Each structure stands twice: as structure tokens, then as C-alpha cells.
Amino acid sequence: PAHPYDRLKTTSTDPVSDIDVTRREAYLSSEEFKEKFGMTKEAFYKLPKWKQNKFKMAVQLF
């Protein structure tokens, strides 16, 4: 299930529990994912792991 970005980011005051914290981005809706990352999930997962992590750090999901 998708969760709002505000509850997934590492600085959230009301974090979602029971998620894989190493894959926070996977819980974003497709729309919100595209808004935050500027690309689709499919394109994101084709990137090298280090680049994925760099993007995730930039949007507080790492």
C-alpha cells in the first residue's frame, strides 16, 4: 500500500511503522514518486544503487 511522503521521510514526526526502511521510496504512490524524484519508479530502479541512494538522500528517504 502507498503511504504519504510526509510519513515516509526520515525526518517524519509521524513515521509509518512496519515498512522496509531500506526501501522507503517503494511505498510512495506513482504520482508522488514522480513528483519527488522526477522519474518513474521503473526508471529509478534501473539506475545504479549508488545513484538511487544519492536521489533518496536528496529527498530524505535514506
Rank of each mutant, 00 (worst) to 15 (best):
Asp6Arg: 00
Arg23Glu: 04
Thr40Val: 07
Leu28Tyr: 04
Glu31Ser: 14
Ala43Lys: 11
Pro1Arg: 11
Lys54Phe: 13
Val16Gln: 07
Glu25Met: 09
Leu8Ala: 05
Lys49Ser: 08
Thr40Trp: 04
Thr11Glu: 09
Lys51Asn: 08
Tyr5Arg: 02
Leu61Ala: 09
Glu31Cys: 10
Gln60Glu: 14
Ser17Lys: 14
Pro48His: 01
Asn53Asp: 14
Arg23Phe: 07
Lys54Ala: 12
Pro48Val: 01
Ser17Asp: 12
Val21Lys: 07
Leu61Ser: 04
Val59Gln: 10
Asp18His: 08
Tyr5Gln: 07
Ile19Ser: 02
Lys41Gln: 08
Phe62Met: 14
Ile19Val: 08
Arg7His: 07
Lys51Pro: 00
Glu25Phe: 10
Glu32Val: 05
Ala26Gln: 14
Thr40Tyr: 03
Ala26Asn: 07
Ala58Leu: 14
Ser29Trp: 04
Arg7Trp: 08
Lys49Tyr: 07
Glu35Cys: 12
Phe37Lys: 00
Leu61Asp: 07
Tyr45Arg: 07
Ser12Phe: 06
Ala2Phe: 15
Tyr5Asn: 04
Leu28Ile: 03
Glu35Lys: 07
Val16Thr: 05
Lys49Asp: 06
Lys41Met: 10
Thr10Tyr: 12
Thr10Ser: 06
Lys56Arg: 11
Gln52Trp: 01
Glu35Met: 11
Leu8Asp: 05
Ile19Thr: 03
Ala26Cys: 13
Asn53Gly: 04
Lys41Asn: 01
Ser17Trp: 13
Glu31Ile: 09
Ile19Leu: 04
Glu35Leu: 12
Thr11Phe: 03
Trp50Gly: 02
Pro1Cys: 15
Pro48Asp: 04
Lys51Trp: 12
Pro1Glu: 13
Thr22Gln: 09
Leu47Phe: 05
Ser29Tyr: 03
Gln52Ala: 02
Thr10Arg: 01
Val21Met: 08
Glu32Gln: 09
Pro1His: 13
Phe37Thr: 01
Met57Pro: 00
Phe62Asp: 15
Arg24Ile: 11
Gln52Met: 01
Asp6Ala: 00
Tyr45Ala: 05
Phe33Leu: 01
Thr40His: 09
Phe44Gln: 00
Lys54His: 09
Leu47Thr: 00
Glu31Asp: 12
Phe44Cys: 01
Val59Trp: 11
Thr22Val: 06
Asp6Leu: 00
His3Val: 11
Ala43Val: 12
Tyr5Asp: 05
Phe44Arg: 00
Ser12Val: 03
Val59Met: 14
Val59Ala: 09
Ser30Thr: 15
Ser12Cys: 13
Glu42Leu: 10
Leu8Ile: 08
Ser12Trp: 03
Tyr45Glu: 11
Ser17Tyr: 15
Thr22Met: 07
Val21Ser: 08
Phe55Gly: 00
Lys41Gly: 02
Tyr45Gly: 03
Pro48Met: 00
Thr10Ala: 04
Glu42Gln: 12
Ala43His: 10
Lys56Met: 07
Thr10Leu: 10
Lys51Glu: 13
Ala43Gln: 14
Pro1Leu: 12
Leu28Trp: 03
Gly38Asp: 04
Thr13Val: 11
Gly38Ser: 08
Phe44Asp: 00
Glu32Leu: 02
Lys51Arg: 13
Lys9Met: 12
Lys36Tyr: 15
Glu25Leu: 10
Gly38Ile: 02
Tyr27Pro: 06
Val21Thr: 11
Lys54Arg: 13
Gly38Cys: 14
Pro4Ile: 04
Ile19Met: 02
Lys34Asn: 14
Lys36Met: 13
Lys51Cys: 15
Lys56Gly: 01
Lys36Pro: 01
Pro15Val: 05
Lys56Asn: 03
Lys54Cys: 15
Leu28Ala: 01
Phe37Met: 06
Lys54Trp: 14
Ala43Cys: 13
Asp20Thr: 04
Leu28Met: 07
Lys34Cys: 15
Asp14Leu: 07
Thr13Trp: 07
Asp6Gln: 01
Val59Leu: 15
Arg23Ser: 10
Asp20Tyr: 01
Phe44His: 00
Leu28Gln: 01
Phe55Ile: 10
Tyr45Cys: 08
Asn53His: 09
Pro15Gln: 05
Tyr45Met: 03
Thr11Val: 04
Val16Trp: 03
Thr10Lys: 03
Arg7Thr: 07
Val59Ser: 05
Leu61Met: 11
Gln60Phe: 14
Asn53Met: 13
Pro48Phe: 11
Val16His: 05
Arg24Met: 10
Arg23Tyr: 06
Ala43Asn: 11
Phe37Ile: 02
Leu47Gln: 02
Met39Pro: 00
Phe37Ser: 00
Asp20Ala: 07
Phe44Met: 01
Gln60Thr: 05
Thr22Arg: 09
Ser17Ile: 13
Phe62Gly: 15
Pro1Thr: 12
Ser29Val: 09
Pro4Gln: 06
Thr22Lys: 09
Ser30Cys: 13
Lys49Gln: 11
Val59Arg: 06
Gly38Lys: 11
Ile19Tyr: 04
Arg7Val: 08
Ala43Trp: 05
Thr40Asn: 11
Val21Asp: 11
Tyr5Thr: 03
Leu8Met: 05
Thr11Met: 04
Gln52Asp: 00
Ser12Glu: 04
Lys46Ile: 13
Tyr27Trp: 04
Lys36Leu: 15
Asn53Thr: 12
Thr11Asp: 14
Phe37Trp: 02
Ala58Phe: 09
Arg7Met: 06
Gly38Trp: 07
Glu32Ser: 06
Glu42His: 09
Glu35Thr: 10
Tyr5Val: 05
Val21Asn: 06
Ala26Ile: 10
Lys54Gln: 14
Ser12Tyr: 06
Lys46Trp: 08
